[in-house]
Design a protein around this nucleic acid. Sequence first.
DNA 1: AACGTTACTTTATGGCGTAAGGAGATGCAA
DNA 2: TTGCATCTCCTTACGCCATAAAGTAACGTT
Lengths: 263, 263
Amino acid sequence: MVVYAGQGDPRRSMDLMWGNRVSNLRPGPKPGLSVDVIIDAAIGVADVEGMTGLSMRAVGERLGRTAMALYTYVPTKGDLVDLMYDRVLGELPTHYEPRLGWRGSVTSWAEDHLEFHLRHPWTLQVSQARPVLGPNEFATLDTASGILHETGLRPPVLRGILGVVLHFVRGAARTESEARSAEEETGVSDEDWWHSRSPLLVEVAPDFAARFPMAVRMEQDKPAPPEDPEKPYLESAMAESFAMGLGVILDGIEATIEKARVG
Amino acid sequence: MVVYAGQGDPRRSMDLMWGNRVSNLRPGPKPGLSVDVIIDAAIGVADVEGMTGLSMRAVGERLGRTAMALYTYVPTKGDLVDLMYDRVLGELPTHYEPRLGWRGSVTSWAEDHLEFHLRHPWTLQVSQARPVLGPNEFATLDTASGILHETGLRPPVLRGILGVVLHFVRGAARTESEARSAEEETGVSDEDWWHSRSPLLVEVAPDFAARFPMAVRMEQDKPAPPEDPEKPYLESAMAESFAMGLGVILDGIEATIEKARVG
DNA sequence: AACGTTACTTTATGGCGTAAGGAGATGCAA
DNA sequence: TTGCATCTCCTTACGCCATAAAGTAACGTT
């Protein structure tokens, strides 16, 4: 029998997602666990060990059970991940002060999402192809739509803009979180890594500067690496590129509004 | 012993990447394989089966060998992936006609990259945190830098812009490729999937429209699903959002140039 | 002819998701 | 009170994965 990625029976999945719990008075031993504590334990594992460290065995162990015990509550690991995802999505704000205007709101929204993904990097591995259809996922979509609605643009354009902002924020978060886990998993800092490889690079490609002149030029005026690696991302020097990129996007939205007003 | 993600000895990795092959006249049986044919076989596997289907066993099998035979040529699977990545990067153009201007060049560049990632979806799973430092990676970086240099903007801004375009293209490619593999792996089309879930959704959340009004509004004026699912992505109706998003980004770049000129 | 080096194989270790089947606890009907 | 259906949770097992370790056989050099 083949079980498809992350989906058991659709009805069961939906009931779990929207909290339709089944009646409690039935024969058999009292449940020692619940879907909720399993979701929380799984989030705890994933936050620390990442998506690759999230195994049914690890979650079970955290709850003093075996991996198989979880299957009493949750049909597959894929469903559990969907539930985890919609749960943490609840951490995101669902309201932004209208007096911020769309520019301020989009900025706050982007920063909130960036921090969210850095807090729960495993969320970046959840496929966006088929939405989880959970309450919090719809709530975040509703919030984003509300902000963008202020621009007065029509839905097809708004979907394009939402795609740009989402892809940008997720991409930036992905780059940063991959950098962090590379450092953690190899035990080698970015700086040490580069120091070990740059001499090899000049050895193996002595004509480097002549061969890739534009790439070299692109490295000009790089900010110094952060003094304190524990600083939150948005206050670190690495955020420069994020701020620059977001500024370009905001200006692009503004130009699009202007075009629509004139044309 | 712990082997770290994707890296053996740095010197060996670099030699493999830049084609420093070791002398051929040595005792022992003649090599039946080579790093190059292994890379090609691995790309063949990954293009068809995706990154999750890429196993040393599968690559070995394609070459009539066992998985372990590959370790004579390549130190770890991680190194093999790096080599695969730099190899396919060679498919991308390294030159764009200057008469296209930066707008036309960025557009072509984005479309080329989108098609590239859809042709080799596994490239989206290669970590961008620590570059592969191969010749083709540098070449593509050089090409992109050259295009952006035409805007006359300074490197820190250009890095921000490059991030926006890269994240956008990769995000769009990721969404599309995840949709394709969801369809392939589950055997259920997007349409059928939605048809099976939307009735459950209204059942489980009858107040949906009142609860998420903006999200509902965002669905207005959606293009019809593609008549012919075999059409290339860029000619399909799904490309609407990509074109919209790219337009917003281009306008943002233009506004940034204007600001720099004036201020 | 002997020896060291090399290509490739077999086997084994410790991980994964989860199917299958069984033990023991519990609520209810007779 | 007994018997049974139903439940939670366990052990075991299967077929995957990367790769360590050790063995076999082919080959170039001495």
